[in-house]
């Protein structure tokens, strides 16, 4: 594929998705960038704003198998990764893979599960393999997790610890649609039906090629310096409890590359970094003054305006 072909293909993907998820161009683009960068996505918002639909659409257009795991408070790790069962006929144990053995996992309402169940998923996300009873089983490639989570102030939730939040490359919020989009949604066809009718645009090898392409987007020394300056500033600023980790810096660069690719560019601009910054830092920086509810956008703006371009 030629660069222009990439751009064309990615634009088509976005058009397809935006036909179903109405009025959410920015979050949709972020979600796609996250997958291109090969990371896992955390979607946090109230029930019913289209989190699950987003996952279904993404899986469909990218041509990936989707398994949905609905997390509940009585869930056990075996419910996610699978279990060995004794087969009387053969006289041996047989492994029954859990729902995690798929290309895309929709982990619905992750924060409803107990920490034990959560960590089973999160470990698989990090390692991209599962070890059960001594045997290591690789997960398919590509492997994506889209986790949704209700805002923590809802009843019956186990908030994810910061160390585990860090495993999600991006966190996005969908929010309510605007008036026009909502009217169109109400008037339009059944979303489930529309998803089913979508044709996949990609095969898994093509997706892997796109990911490869994302990694090769050029980041100039000036841009690397900018990302470093951003991370360094969060570490010295008294605003936040702790600064961004080097892993967060890598995440920022990876997503910024995907963003540049979505724009049809072969190099990253500071604007790309600034655009993806809210999704990268929202779940990684915590204000000292926790009582204030500060949106990801405002946090990112504060950071952007404090760090001059090198």
């Amino acid at each position: 594929m030629q660069p222009s072909e990439h751009h064309l293909l990615l634009t088509q993907l976005l058009t397809d998705i935006n036909r179903i998820i109405l009025g959410k161009k920015e979050p949709v683009r972020m979600a796609l960038a996250c997958l291109l960068a090969g990371g896992h996505l955390l979607v946090e918002d109230l029930p019913g704003v289209g989190k699950t639909t987003l996952a279904h659409v993404l899986a469909r257009v990218l041509g990936l198998d989707l398994q949905r795991i609905q997390f509940t408070s009585d869930m056990l790790p075996a419910d996610i990764i699978g279990v060995s069962v004794f087969d009387r006929a053969s006289g041996a144990f047989h492994f029954h893979p859990g729902p995690i053995f798929t290309q895309m996992v929709l982990a619905d309402e992750l924060n409803r599960a107990t920490p034990k169940a959560q960590s089973a998923l999160l470990e698989a996300m990090e390692e991209r393999q599962v070890t059960i009873e001594g045997a290591t089983r690789a997960l398919p490639a590509p492997f994506f997790v889209i986790a949704t989570q209700n805002p923590a102030f809802q009843i019956g939730t186990f908030p994810l610890p910061e160390s585990q939040l860090d495993r999600f490359l991006l966190k996005i919020e969908l929010g309510y649609p605007d008036a026009a989009a909502e009217r169109e949604l109400l008037a339009g066809a059944d979303r489930r039906q529309m998803v089913a009718e979508l044709t996949p645009r990609l095969l898994p090898p093509q997706l892997l090629e796109l990911q490869q392409k994302t990694r090769s987007v050029h980041a100039s020394p000036a841009l690397i310096a900018y990302i470093q300056a951003l991370a360094a500033f969060t570490r010295s600023s008294p605003l936040w409890v702790a600064g961004l980790s080097p892993r967060a810096g890598l995440a920022l660069l990876a997503v910024a590359r995907a963003w540049a690719l979505l724009d049809g560019r072969d190099h990253v601009l500071p604007e790309d970094v600034q655009a993806v910054l809210p999704g990268v830092i929202a779940h990684r920086l915590r204000f000292h003054d926790d009582t204030r509810k500060v949106g990801a956008g405002e946090t990112a703006n504060r950071l952007i305006e404090a760090v001059p371009l090198p």
């Binding site: 601009l269 500071p270 604007e271 600034q274 952007i304 305006e305 404090a306 760090v307 001059p308 371009l309």
Partner: peptide, 9 residues
């Protein structure tokens, strides 16, 4: 020009 503004912005 604000020092944090990228060229496109």
């Amino acid at each position: 020009w604000q020092p944090w503004e990228g060229p496109d912005t």
